[in-house]
Amino acid sequence: MDATFRLWRSEPGGAGALTDYKTPVSEGMVVLDAVHRIQAEQAPDLAVRWNCKAGKCGSCSAEINGKPRLMCMTRLSTLDLNKPVIVEPMKTFPLIKDLVTDVSWNFSVKKTIQKFKPRQPDAPDGTWRMAQKDIDRVQEHRKCIECFLCQDVCHVLRDHGKHDEFIGPRFLLYAAQLEMNPLDTADRLHDLKDKHNIGYCNITKCCTAVCPEHIKITDNAIIPLKERVVDRFYDPVTRLLRMFK
């Protein structure tokens, strides 16, 4: 059976257009398989970023039929193949070519977040003790594969272009796992409020909806961070006490 894939093709730094490619498909295939087949047989210079093809590295992020997805984890059996499958690059980042975008902004944002700063070791041999139940949440956050699909879907970045003011769900999650790490002693709340503008997030949960690792970004990371910021800076009782300090 053949299916049609409507891929975004572009000239470097120039205009682009959706282009149809017809290719044979078989049971169990994912979108990335089809894209690879097209690349090997019809469009050898097609630009597509990928690595592990197993949902573990977060390289092949794209918008499939308008939804931010990993190409390697989107099975063709979940799509309607009677219509062309539309594959486009992420829209929140500058386009390099075809399906590949420039995601370097994300790497520079990470540098603005205070690094992990552990407390003094608990044992004389320089090691720490932590209970599993105290790190379950942190481990959920650390499942992130940095595919940046949450950044792609976030309207603060995508529609309002606040890349200079707002760090996006990925890095709120990153800050959350540091803040919730039982060993960490750094304080990132001030930065979150004033520099990273956590307040811009109005919890529409789009990031959670697209996360391929099923991390509850909004409920388990952003909202708890917002609560910490509110408790610290906006709680009336605390403010009152601070006035008399």
Partner: peptide, 10 residues
């Protein structure tokens, strides 16, 4: 290979 040098899979 054909095309440009930019991100050229081939």
């Amino acid at each position: 290979v054909s095309g440009h040098r930019e991100y050229n899979g081939g």
